[in-house]
Design a protein around this nucleic acid. Sequence first.
DNA 1: GTCTATATAGTGATAGAC
DNA 2: GTCTATCACTATATAGAC
Lengths: 180, 180
Amino acid sequence: MRAAALRLFAQGGYAAVSMRAIAAEVGVQAGALYNYTPDKQTLLFDLMESHMTELLAAVPQTGDADPQTLLHDFVGFHIRFHHARPDAVFIAYMELRNLTEANFARIEALRRRYEDGLECILRNGVATGAFAVHDTKIATLAIIAMLTGVNTWFRAGGRLSLDEVTAQYQNMVRKAVRAD
Amino acid sequence: MRAAALRLFAQGGYAAVSMRAIAAEVGVQAGALYNYTPDKQTLLFDLMESHMTELLAAVPQTGDADPQTLLHDFVGFHIRFHHARPDAVFIAYMELRNLTEANFARIEALRRRYEDGLECILRNGVATGAFAVHDTKIATLAIIAMLTGVNTWFRAGGRLSLDEVTAQYQNMVRKAVRAD
DNA sequence: GTCTATATAGTGATAGAC
DNA sequence: GTCTATCACTATATAGAC
């Protein structure tokens, strides 16, 4: 059910997808779904929370490596992780407004924790003089927006491989934050 | 009607907003709206097309100035233009999937024309040696995603003014594409 | 645990009075 | 040009048979 809902929500949007449509995708009647979720809102929230939890579990831990290496690895991780889950990423960014206030706050807290990981790398780099960034929070948001944007246009089998694209983003990010 | 629909679509999403809700916002009954739009789909398309047309009309023309100046001005224009129209920007990015195939193609064509303006600046800069970018198309998409992301978090009256934020983005973009 | 049936409400769009 | 009334559908969620 969750796989079907993920696919359909990403395709048509939460509001436009009926429980009947999800049930049809699964191969059952609509009523049967309510044995697996109390309601549609909870189903959406669970999908988003699972995505964010997986993201936080998978992000490379900020270790002892130098800031340049950590940033390079973060860029590679972000692009690859998000490329592998286009539907979940789409929903996590587009369906925030369809969450109840309480559910929205919980997803936002998870998202902020992810951002904090990148900002920590940038702050350490600024402290060591490896990076020159006026405001690490702004740089964090700018980098994440740039990286997540890959999902909106990249298609495997196109002109460039994902590794080639990743290398170019790593290069742009490296230059954007480096000390002059 | 268009102003009401813009606000409500941005708030709740195209699929979740009824013609009755738009009519209530305007202060008329639902039937009256059909004197101003043939249907809900055309209303959405008109909002998006107007936004893209205004964007293309307002973007600074690629002139004889040096690439660094043109890029600097493009960044400033993009952030300011999009900041002034949060609802239209939100709809233009989030409701693409609710357009019919034909309407989607027309909006996409306009969006591509906007991207081409930036790519032209980058290509000229690479040609003169001012910029070092492996792939101007990727750099174009990366920069636009980064800039549009400002709308998701910036709020006037916060820690930084829009001009301060803009200056930081201009600096990051300048560094990201410059020749080593 | 899935089914059918249904309660209750809302949807986009249209017809015709005024 | 706006209104009321309505058509034909669809929605989420629940009840109770099996």
